[in-house]
Design a protein around this nucleic acid. Sequence first.
DNA 1: AAGTGGTCTAGACCACTAC
DNA 2: TAGTGGTCTAGACCACTTA
Lengths: 250, 250
Amino acid sequence: MNNDIAMPHTAMIGSTLYKEVKRGILAALAGGEWKAGEAIPAERKLGERFGVSIGTLRKAIDELVAENILIRHQGRGTFVATHARDHHYFRFFRVVRQDGYKTYPTVALERFRKAKASREACEKLGLGTGARVFQFTNRLMLDDDIVMLDEITLPEALFAGLTEADLRDRPTTLYNLYQDVFGLNVIRTDERLRAGLAEGDSARLLGVPAGTPLIELRRIAFSYHDQPVEWRISRLNTEKYEYLVSEAGA
Amino acid sequence: MNNDIAMPHTAMIGSTLYKEVKRGILAALAGGEWKAGEAIPAERKLGERFGVSIGTLRKAIDELVAENILIRHQGRGTFVATHARDHHYFRFFRVVRQDGYKTYPTVALERFRKAKASREACEKLGLGTGARVFQFTNRLMLDDDIVMLDEITLPEALFAGLTEADLRDRPTTLYNLYQDVFGLNVIRTDERLRAGLAEGDSARLLGVPAGTPLIELRRIAFSYHDQPVEWRISRLNTEKYEYLVSEAGA
DNA sequence: AAGTGGTCTAGACCACTAC
DNA sequence: TAGTGGTCTAGACCACTTA
């Protein structure tokens, strides 16, 4: 076989061909060349563009699919993953009823304001002290039970022009709004859980007595290149519901 | 190219060749042909055994590696994953200090007995009512803090001959003991978290006042073919520590 | 030096989708 | 029917490990 074609590629420093291709695709995605929900070019076309064989290109795409960044549909094409379609609406929503039944939450916007970021929010979002942010609180219902309270912080720099109406009237999920309106794709989250107690505000909004045990959840949501785009503290009432972690499945 | 070889394979009902190969490897693993820590035959050999090309065989192994069932080492071979080696000692241990620092827990056996399984344990372990089980309690320390209490239930049928000494003197992790002594490989867990409060026994053993908020964690651990092998209820003190869930990473 | 997994190729045919 | 992704092949060479 002719190695004049294969050899120069492997000479690329500190990497492999398919990783380079993956990086190239990721760069095109981050650069907005293909938007959420759109199809990317066919495998053969992309293979030509990057100057690699179809097998190598597929390996790059394989990894992006495994990371839920792209979605393949046989016979249709390969698409940029969307939080709205693709029926993984609630990849990051892990609350289920104690009998295992899954339902979709109803969301009510409780508060909305512009403010300066707290010290903790600055740290988690990688912002300079005093950076402007949007802060709002959502109340989540499942089966007519108030289950969770989300206190969400978004950098104003990334969500320029966000209004209370955007949040109140949105027809889809929050992360779909980030995607469609602001071009920010949440592809990974980091969540840390502690035990806590309902008090004052949170007790009132959750409709439970002060002192009720709650799960206190801190989440950072990331876009491409590990860019943090959202910081939230949630409080979960587990009287009827549970937080589910299923690990290393087929 | 000669298709007399390739064609008959794809005729296999309801599946693809590499899935068949994967199933074959999984069957050999479950049947004990290759034990934890051992190398499986080289790719070329396995390709011959299953009558497939090396590419197809690699795709089957790729998936088993992604599921943490096998581990590849370039130049050495492909090995059956072990909880002891492979430096993923604590795949299922998600407790970290609030500053993010990870340390390894020290375990003390608190109680050990044989008993009849509780109704809940029977259900989770898929046992008939009244099945015999081992029940024991572990106390976990991190940095000299008592952090977690594990109440663990194991079916006697799977862990025949288990003694208190086995648990007390083991040089490695619990899941490594399951592997080495009983041939049971934990490859997946299902965890459900609720908020709770320390009371009586748990407060005493954790060294906290009654009424301290805790995370209450229910876990089922599975081996091959979704066979449940362990059921546990843990109580986690999150005063200095957190339960970490990092999702969909590269 | 021999043996292992890791990368890459070039192209075949299949299954599915849309027109 | 044309175009897409899905599967599979046969074999090359590379990088790494062990002896």
